[in-house]
Design a protein around this nucleic acid. Sequence first.
RNA 1: UGGGGCGUAGCCAAGUGGUAAGGCAGCGGGUUUUGAUCCCGCCAUCCGUAGGUUCGAAUCCUACCGCCCCAGCCA
Length: 560
Amino acid sequence: MNEGQPETRDFIRQIIADDLAGGRHAVIITRFPPEPNGYLHVGHAKSICLNFGVAAETGGRCYLRLDDTNPLKEDQAFVDAIIDSVRWLGFDWGGGLTHASDYFPRIHECAGDLIRAGKAYVDSLSPEQMREFRGTLTAPGRESPHRSRSVAENLDLFARMRAGEFADGEHVLRAKIDMASPNINLRDPVLYRIRRATHQRTGDAWCIYPMYDFAHTISDAIEGITHSLCTLEFEDHRPLYEWFLDNLQLPARPRQIEFSRLNLAFTITSKRRLAELIDLGLVAGWDDPRMPTIAGMRRRGYPPEALRDFVSRTGVTKKEHLIQMSLLENCVREDLNVRGARAMAVINPLKVVLTNYPEGQVEMLPAANHPDRPELGERQLPFGRELWIEQDDFMEVAPNKFFRLKPGGEVRLRYGYIIRCVDLVKDEVGRVIEVHCTYDADTRSGLAGAERKVKGTIHWVSAAHAVRAEVRLYDRLFGVARPDGAEADFKTFLNPESLRVAPHAVLEPSLATAEPGTVLQFERLGYFVADRVDHRPTRPVFNRVVTLRDSWAKLEEAAR
RNA sequence: UGGGGCGUAGCCAAGUGGUAAGGCAGCGGGUUUUGAUCCCGCCAUCCGUAGGUUCGAAUCCUACCGCCCCAGCCA
């Protein structure tokens, strides 16, 4: 699946290679620890590829760990979606599917150990008071009046917290570290809070839940994680991570290493904001093909291989960055160019009548399914007197560089004949609604006459055989590179044209039977996938994955 | 004004004291019954800035500048 070693390794892989070479570890163990409070997105894809990738490359192991320490926000449906996404992306955790909640008993014991060692205490400040006592970025905090409670009192209080004797928020367990630390994470961080909520896995077994830093460090150690890879915002938490490792009796000492998260231009990767789009009905759901979620990209038709390639091309560093969409699109096109069978479809049809073609006659024209892969075979395209062509492929008044159909001009119909435009039919307002052409019978593909050169070749569908379809044309979700900048609400930057449905699209007949999820190239238009949810043979639905590169469009743009 | 990070091309990114890889984008050309693909060529006298060390610096030192993160009983 992964071809050879990259020539240069990122800094994390260098550290790991050194640790292996230096004998510090015999086996590398990593983990991907998402919180099941939403769907995974392209940013997670990077972490997945890194963690599972490193494990696979070194013959190690990677756990898929659901970090379920906050029952208020989490849901089994998200757990299922996460599992589905990771598997679809192409990774396997063997038996290593775990949950932070698996370790609740052990984490609870660790809390007791800390209390007995005089390194944790039950605090009874209100949240507001606690914030006040914490100090600011520049001013040290103050110690809580409850900081000096005796071990016995702390043990008693903590036991009663666990027993459900107190209301939510009445007490918390805190580590006793340093209220004057310049690192705010070390100013007696909360370890446990009371939350009378039913947990999706442990039910009502607990009414106290551990906080992220505490649960995460212990979970890592229990699983024997050697390298705990996370994003930059946790850099400040590393001293706390190490404090837990120093002050608890744990079976392993993982090393936390931070890398910068993957930011993609023209989109957002904030679960909160993605959820907002869904709640407001601005997109159809977590798997809407415009969403940067793994599920959305899957439905959009991005192959997992392309996503993995994309992630690997963006690298792993500590630099903040904003990756251009063109890189992702390039990876998708590169993969689909090889994978996708070719077919013909017309999105905005314009009628062409071949005035010298026998009425009622139908020919079957052979067409290759892939220009570079003969093993994919060919199909027979029905051809007749009336055809649909793309509106964009005809211009009544055309510039010199326009190589398609124009009055008096010739063009080749792909896999068919050369035709010449001889007449136009217009409606009341002067729009061309029909183009009359003559065809040159000697120029059918395969015949000697087909050698004749014409400037352009266009795609078409036989009107008598056309299958009507819904074709969904997707574009970037946002109109600006950084929708989550501070200038305005991100929703004001939504691209109103992110989804356009072509009302009259027609397909060559073979397309109706495409399996949902199949990606094809509609020649000259782009790559399209049969929607994995809505596509039916009786009502085909295709999503545009990405357009083809279009140097004509570029010329047009430059002319404007 | 505290602490933690980061600055190599339009966007990513190698580089670890010996004279700036690669990819994407862009530009020019060739092939082509997809204006696609494919192929060829071009694209940093310079590494945030200014000094310094050195025969030699993107790599070492000093100062400065810029950007990001941290004050949830979220993760």
